[in-house]
Amino acid sequence: MLSSEIEIDIRFSETDAMGVVWHGNYLKFFEDGREAFGKTFGLEYLTIFDQGYFTPIVKSEIDHKAAVYYGQAIKVITKYIPSKSAKIMFEYEVVNLTTGELCAVGKTMQVFLEKESRTLELLTPDFYSHWKEKNDVVF
């Protein structure tokens, strides 16, 4: 399974009045994880864009398990989930590096939109099929 990790220091601006990371920031942490994954495995947003596609999120899930506070650090583990369909799916784990607790788990699903027409691509784009082959992605 392809996966990557990124560590993030929690900033004051990411917390609420209680000093707890605001729940909406977990989607941003997932985004940070996807960007790190893309850099590691050659599936960056600009690469996808240069191939003529956007990949918007069409589904996201988050299960919050434990709080994270200002001044702590987290690790976001991003795991690629293979699919035969023309979509990109990831699972995430957010671990508090200060306490060792699992703080959140989640999933996202992205689809391919053709850049010029903004229409949904129902078939897997060639460049994505080649990427899967290069990275030994199997179902």
Rank of each mutant, 00 (worst) to 15 (best):
E44Q: 05
T47P: 04
E44H: 04
H23A: 03
D50Y: 09
L27Q: 09
I77N: 12
E7R: 11
A73R: 14
N25M: 05
Y45D: 02
M18V: 10
S60T: 13
I81V: 15
T98R: 04
K59R: 07
H64Q: 11
A36K: 13
K115G: 08
E114F: 09
K87C: 13
A17H: 10
W22C: 04
F139T: 15
S3Y: 15
I88G: 03
G106V: 01
G100N: 02
V58L: 03
E61T: 14
F90C: 00
V137G: 00
A86R: 09
G38Q: 01
K115C: 12
G71R: 00
L120N: 07
T119P: 06
E44A: 05
S117R: 08
Y80H: 02
L123E: 03
M18G: 11
K115A: 10
L120E: 10
Y92G: 11
Y69I: 12
F30A: 06
K79C: 06
E91W: 04
D63V: 11
E133C: 08
D9W: 06
G100V: 03
A17E: 12
E101R: 12
G38Y: 02
L97S: 02
D32H: 11
D50T: 01
L123R: 07
L123N: 11
L102T: 11
Y53N: 01
K107T: 08
L122I: 07
D32V: 14
S60V: 08
G71Y: 05
F29P: 00
P56Q: 01
M109T: 10
D126N: 13
L2S: 03
S129A: 15
E14W: 06
I74M: 01
D50M: 07
L46V: 14
C103F: 03
T99G: 06
H130D: 15
K132S: 07
S85H: 15
K84F: 09
E121L: 13
L120P: 12
K132H: 13
R118T: 15
V21E: 04
Q72C: 02
S129M: 15
V111D: 04
K75Q: 09
F127Q: 01
G42H: 00
S83E: 05
A104S: 05
A86M: 01
F49W: 13
E35A: 05
E116T: 09
A67G: 12
I57G: 12
L102Q: 06
D136V: 15
L123M: 06
F37V: 00
A73N: 15
F29Q: 00
F49C: 08
D9T: 06
E101N: 08
G71Q: 00
D32N: 11
G100K: 09
W22S: 04
E101C: 06
A86D: 05
F127H: 01
I77M: 15
